[in-house]
Design a binder for these strands. Structure first.
Lengths: 339, 339
DNA sequence: GTTTGCGGTTGAGACGATTCAAAAGAATCT
DNA sequence: AGATTCTTTTGAATCGTCTCAACCGCAAAC
């Protein structure tokens, strides 16, 4: 309604619009007297600069989009917080979008972000191959892949999921487990596929070990984990695995919950290890062993790469940063089992 | 870089810019033949409409800001998802901002949102009195308070926190508890103050019941809850409360964790009830009793009110919607205690 | 007294899309 | 054929800010 513009300010301060603009953007080149007059006019009118018009004129936005697979997974929230902390220092803004694992939603968000002419996009893509993203980048919106492998056409930050899976597998084997269940979504999700490959390789390297596999729907939620847990609990004891490696902590928490409701003890009857080491993992029924990822660092690095590319697009060379995951042992896998 | 504009499309399609705009906004008034030509040109050039310019011209934005107290609290994530689902249906966008309980951050976010000329703002304010918000509304940005009491100057949605506290208190008393600890942040946080007032009134109504109070820092985190739990666990048994009511589930989870590490059984030695009923509450070490709030509904209703105000600002009357909380009993308070 | 330099200030274009009055074309009727 | 109506298309004006070449005093330099 009552939104004032630069012209009204200029009028009240008896200067030209150019001068008001200067006061706003390069106050040092304006004489103290006029500067003061302009500030007063701004205050009196309650003028708030229209960033939309500014953006249209200068062509550069101050916001970056972050598209994640699942906002209700604290892992992504932590990544987002990492990104935001860096953005803050560059008085930029991060807008968080949730694809919820749905390619349609992802694409709608990307469309919207491109239409807004955001400075750039950080994304954990739903699908590995994404011509859409390349076109987007080709049209001039820088893209950084988060927790995803590099295609060479853009920057990326990731954690070595294969190594993470391997570490988890080796840990369980070392604890004496010989029947290990991998609980994960469809292999089309790269993270799932890699973590699975990792644990498989660990199993393959250990004689007498077998690996079982359950694939779930692409939403790696607590409920999904619980459902798998129910099925496992219903198996006759001799068919049951002695340990479960879940593709993320949310599923591990659900799985754990199912064990509890069916009177199976963790880790005595069945050991569990999750992935991500979200804060809730330590607070679980049985504190959850997990593979820790540097969550905030992931977000921070992603936006650093983006800002680097934006600052000097000509000279920028795409890079891929890969972090190493850590093993965090808690009670859910603490027991040594006789082989 | 290579971003095309409407003029280039017009040139290629051999029509005027007005026609291209019509194809984009009211395709039905353009003859099929030209429409087709324009679409082809758009595709060939990879043209993406510049929402910034559009916004500047039409004066109305398609995004709403949602400023929450703590993104890492799943409660707010659920509120956000509720809001987003409605926004989606109105092809609008929700941008999520985290004030992290810091008035400075909150204000910076509000400034940014106002500069972007967002359609409106949904906010869980850090402080109860907020002249800033009223000025903002006065300058023409509609504001809806979320989980906050109405000031009469704007719409609001909230859950009756006093009632929630009362229900929690009554439940514990009914279970035979006579020494009840309230674990919450400073009373300057309205939610905390109300929940406390509720439990106090329940305690006052029951003879022979005493209430203890611990105030923490304003960040109601898992770590904060754990710290309080540590202190409580260190008390001599006769000084210890027999039940704890935590101001939110995150703290309850931390508190619970501290009990476990100090060998105190829940609910035998100490019962716990939380607030919010986030998904992780059910998955906790001991499944957590909690006061459930209609989280998604809160977000949905908030944005409904906002859209209503935006649709017809003249005739709009500010409203306050208040929901009722529910008691969810789980194992952490399941035991009946001898008085 | 004219020139040169300089700190301040000005104001006329952009930026890219929308809108709308008016023009142009096509179709129908007398 | 000319008048009338209806359908399409046009293009100039507009949204609010930034940029930059030009300009204006004024003082120092010559």
């Amino acid at each position: 309604m009552a939104t004032r513009n630069i012209k009204e300010v200029a009028q009240l301060a008896r200067v030209s619009v150019g001068t008001v603009s200067n006061v706003l953007n390069r106050p040092e080149i304006v004489s103290p007297a006029t500067r003061e007059r302009v500030f007063e006019a701004i205050k009196k009118l309650g003028f708030v600069r229209n960033e939309v018009a500014r953006h249209l004129r200068v062509g550069r936005s101050r916001t970056v989009g972050l598209v994640v697979l699942d906002v209700s997974n604290p892992f992504f929230v932590d990544v987002a917080q990492g990104a935001e902390s860096v953005a803050d220092d560059h008085d930029s803004m991060v807008v968080l979008c949730n694809s919820a694992g749905d390619p349609g939603r992802e694409r709608r968000h990307l469309d919207q972000l491109e239409q807004q002419r955001v400075m750039g996009i950080l994304i954990t893509p739903v699908e590995m191959e994404s011509p859409w993203l390349e076109e987007l980048a080709g049209r001039g919106t820088p893209v950084v892949l988060v927790d995803s492998p590099a295609t060479g056409l853009q920057c990326s930050v990731a954690v070595d999921d294969r190594l993470g899976g391997q570490i988890a597998g080796a840990h369980l084997i070392e604890r004496g487990h010989r029947r290990i269940l991998f609980v994960g979504g469809p292999p089309s999700i790269r993270q799932v596929a890699d973590r699975h490959a990792g644990v498989s390789s660990a199993v393959a390297a250990a004689d007498g070990t077998v690996e079982l596999l359950t694939s779930t729907s692409p939403t790696l939620t607590v409920a999904e984990g619980r459902a798998v847990g129910e099925r496992v609990a219903a198996l006759p004891p001799e068919e049951r695995p002695t340990a479960a490696f879940c593709a993320n902590d949310m599923m591990a928490l659900g799985f754990l919950q199912a064990m509890a409701t069916h009177g199976l003890r963790v880790p005595e009857d069945l050991a569990i290890i999750g992935y991500d080491d979200i804060d809730f993992a330590a607070a679980a029924a049985v504190p959850l062993s997990s593979i820790r990822q540097p969550r905030e660092l992931l977000g921070r690095t992603a936006i650093d790469l983006l800002l680097e590319e934006v600052a000097d697009p000509e000279q920028h060379r795409h890079r891929q940063v890969i972090f190493q995951p850590d093993l965090v042992i808690r009670e859910s896998s603490a027991l040594r089992r006789d082989a």
